[in-house]
């Protein structure tokens, strides 16, 4: 029964999916492509690309897409595919809800306990480091384009070769200054940078 398997698989992924969307993707690949063969590797790669390009958490995007494709690949109508994506999405979120109940009950009861306070005192500076690491990890050629180390004497060739990289750096700096010092809303910046990308690339 593919619908039950889908639910069970994505519940498991939600329950053991530590370490964010990308770590989850490799779990999804292991289950969906290798174990069950619901999708081919090429289809899965397409899903990863689309999950990254569309808004929303990668874990949700891929669950929705895999749920649909798995059912349609199994020979069902697209309408059943919609049910498949609903099942996969609900299943991947459900463990979070259950854990939230358990933890919130515990946290609200003990949040003023000196030991709990001490734990969070240790956690807060580390979270700042986590956020910095997230930004650093994303500063790669996939997001900024390739950098070619050419002599600056031939400025024209340098700019032509590194066009995407240079524009990306400018977008990065402008966005950083606009949100940090001028409190421009992140949503406006995303829209503006999308428009800039359309005209500049």
């Amino acid at each position: 029964m593919i619908f039950l398997q889908l639910f069970y698989t994505f519940f498991k992924i939600g329950l053991f999916g530590f370490g964010g969307g990308y770590a989850m993707l490799s779990m999804i690949q292991g289950e969906v492509v290798t174990k069950y063969g619901w999708l081919s590797t090429a289809e899965f790669t397409d899903i990863v690309a689309i999950s990254q390009m569309t808004p929303g958490p990668i874990g949700i995007n891929s669950a929705t897409y895999v749920g649909y494709s798995a059912i349609v690949n199994a020979g069902f109508q697209p309408a059943m595919g919609v049910i498949g994506s609903t099942i996969a999405t609900l299943a991947v979120v459900l463990p979070s809800f259950i854990l939230m109940f358990l933890i919130s009950k515990f946290f609200i009861k003990f949040q003023n306990h000196p030991s709990v306070k001490a734990v969070f005192k240790g956690l807060r500076p580390a979270i700042v480091g986590l956020l910095a690491a997230a930004a650093l990890l994303l500063m790669n050629s996939e997001n900024f384009g390739q950098f070619y180390n050419l002599p600056l004497s031939d400025l024209r060739t340098f700019i032509q070769a590194n066009y995407q990289f240079l524009i990306s750096i400018i977008i990065f700096i402008v966005t950083f200054i606009a949100t940090r010092y001028y409190k421009i809303s992140p949503i406006y910046m995303i829209i503006l940078c999308g428009i800039a990308g359309f005209f500049l690339f």
Binding site: L131, A132, V174, L200, F201
Partner: peptide, 18 residues
């Protein structure tokens, strides 16, 4: 093209709150 513009922007948006 639109996403080539959005990607570096998102990285900056994550760097700023740090």
């Amino acid at each position: 093209r639109i996403f080539m513009g959005i990607r570096p922007c998102v990285v900056a948006l994550i760097a700023a709150p740090t």
